[in-house]
Design a protein around this nucleic acid. Structure first.
Lengths: 387, 387
DNA sequence: CTGTTAGCGCCTTCAA
DNA sequence: TTGAAGGCGCTAACAG
């Protein structure tokens, strides 16, 4: 909070409530919150007992119809809201689900979280979100929080194996999202990275590219490893040479990717196509091409993995692999719901999201290609689906 | 979940844990989670009483140094994790904060949530996120959830006044973010919309624009009203005519904005500059210009309010008002922390985030302008700060 | 069908 | 400095 901020005590935009009783001289301790009505109060208001009130509210057990109505009305009248903490304590199970992700600022995770939250909310759960910023410590801390609040399940995009293991060791059902810790048996929802990478690479090969550089930040997880595998499989299937120097390692930040691409282009001017393995890397690659003044796709083509909004806004739009992130999130949530309901007891389920390819303007035949472009070069954005 | 998904029971990528005891024939009910150690167990393990163990952990009250050590060690050893529900029930106060926002898929809200979560987590709170999708019902439902879990405070980007009122009526401290419900006295963090809109409009006027259209989706909240005011104030100060037909109402979706812009351009070919009041509207406006084949900024300039990633990726980059959304989020969180600590007792605080202007390539002198461009037209992106 | 009882796990008196 | 006791609000047994 720098000097950008300016404090004021009162805003002209906000009118004082016309309620003199609200006035409290500064310095007085804050009013202790009015005690919330408990089920005792509700029972009294409905002229019955707490247990009957409880039954009326929950629908478990017998309650005379008229009594139920009385209780419901009373609840409405006195503004009764059941205490979830007490309920959780008593029931030893909550309607809370922990969501442990890496970076809400990254549209991939934001969309994932949105899909999860949407589905879980409609199933009557609420969501505790912890961002771990890619840090193992924060991730473990998040897992500890989930244990402490007795979440009934957790959805994790793992950074390390510790958090997932902690949760599983404590009997918390875990759904791993996007990637899975090797050797831990939990439910999971993964993207078919191999297939996605393979199909988009095939698209490039079909256009005539033979020197396709892969920009990638990790191959330890199924995400990176799968994308690398798919890329290789496509090359192999097409009988193309596998030049190890064209697999370009980088750190995950756009800046790192930008530098890596700039260096690559200087080193290997023969490269006609760049495949960025994540949306962040694609961002850096795109910037490197733009700053380097490379014409896309005439001089060099670009494809990405993971469709994020800017890719359909730029011109040319970026051809990419759509992971259906929203669907990924909803599927995770559904797995959680099924697991809690016990309908998936006895086995773990790993679902795969089948990605699809979105072809935009950033891919074309390689420069010097004698193959006429089969696909007419579209005007900006016209091949893009609506974002 | 459509045909894109394919279920499998087992993934080659995930190895079975080498733990035969884990095997459970399908159909067997899930193992009841091993009872978690309670403070009783901890006391036993540390050869003391629960009360002493409690004091040792919390630091409240006297505990002999050696006993404290014993308790802490035992806690570590047996994997004791205090039950937050029990603690909340007993203490009548939790470390949970509710965050009620409109749309996690919109980078504005995602960034806001990220800033909030980050700051609150480091202050020892955890966050319950509810997305309301702009729906009053969902918002009220979210507020009810917050009441039920006894959050110690809530941060809300209000959609209606009901949710905020419900929370406040129950004594839950509320920080309203980005916009405030008129007539409710809570803490809040707002952006100085008037100033931001005014300054960016002045920038345009300085370039020589006189027919500046404002694309706006609402003027009921301080956000829209403020941006409209700032726009008008700048025109007025410059002695420019105020053409009501240049204030173009639209719904908030990019598609709506796209159509509105297309219609406007047909109707008013004399417009030289478009000011989109939100990032969503800017998206639609940008697309409309691109599809319409308008050269930006030569034929028409574009500015936005709220900086989101695509604006620095496209060429030309979009000149916009940076709301410092991350800071906005952190400031909300800080207000919550202060409020809970009681350090702000006795008054409400409304903070203002002072936005700043990011000038990119989408703004230039109006067509036919005789004023030479003072600012050399930069190459793509070179005026953009790193995204 | 209803009400009484007990206890979920924790923390804070209060008495020792 | 420690431990015993009680109760936060809720619901599932169980007895009426």
């Amino acid at each position: 909070m720098g000097s950008r901020n300016r404090d004021i005590q009162w805003s002209a935009m906000v009118r004082r409530r016309e309620d003199g009783a609200e006035h409290r001289p500064s310095g007085t301790p804050p009013p202790k919150p009015r005690r919330r009505p408990t089920i005792q109060d509700l029972a009294r208001a409905a002229a019955t007992s707490p247990s009957t009130a409880s039954r009326a509210l929950s629908g478990n057990g017998y309650v005379a119809a008229d009594v139920r109505v009385r209780v419901l009305e009373a609840a409405e009248r006195i503004g009764y809201v059941p205490d979830i903490n007490a309920r959780t304590l008593r029931n030893r199970t909550s309607r809370a689900v922990g969501v442990l992700i890496s970076d809400l600022r990254n549209p991939f995770y934001a969309t994932l979280a949105a899909g999860i939250e949407q589905r879980l909310r409609s199933a009557g759960y609420h969501v505790i979100v912890v961002n771990n910023d890619g840090e193992e410590e924060a991730e473990v801390e998040g897992a500890r929080t989930f244990l402490a609040v007795r979440v009934s399940a957790a959805i994790v995009t793992p950074v390390s194996e510790r958090a997932v293991r902690m949760l599983m060791d404590d009997g918390v059902p875990v759904v791993q999202a996007d990637r899975m810790v090797d050797g831990l048996t939990s439910d999971g929802v993964l993207v078919d990275n191999v297939q996605g990478a393979r199909r988009i690479t095939e698209h490039l090969i079909g256009l005539g590219h033979t020197r396709i550089a892969l920009l990638i930040d990790e191959t330890d997880w199924t995400t990176g490893a799968g994308r690398l595998d798919g890329y290789r499989a496509a090359l192999r299937a097409a009988g193309l040479p596998m030049d190890p120097a064209l697999v370009v390692p980088t750190r995950f930040q756009p800046e790192a990717a930008r530098e890596a691409v700039t260096a690559l282009l200087a080193r290997r001017p023969d490269v006609t196509e760049l495949f960025a393995a994540t949306n962040m890397l694609a961002e850096g690659a795109f910037q490197a091409l733009q700053r380097g003044g490379r014409r896309v796709p005439e001089e060099i083509s670009l494809v990405a993995f993971d469709d994020v909004p800017w890719m359909s806004m730029v011109s040319p739009g970026v051809t990419t692999v759509d992971q259906h992130t929203d669907d990924l999130g909803r599927t995770c949530a559904q797995l959680v719901v099924d697991r809690i309901a016990g309908s998936s007891a006895g086995h773990t389920t790993v679902k795969y999201i089948e990605p699809s390819i979105i072809i935009r303007g950033s891919t074309g035949p390689p420069r010097g290609s004698t193959v006429p472009a089969a696909r007419p070069e579209p005007g900006p954005l016209t091949t893009s689906p609506p974002s």
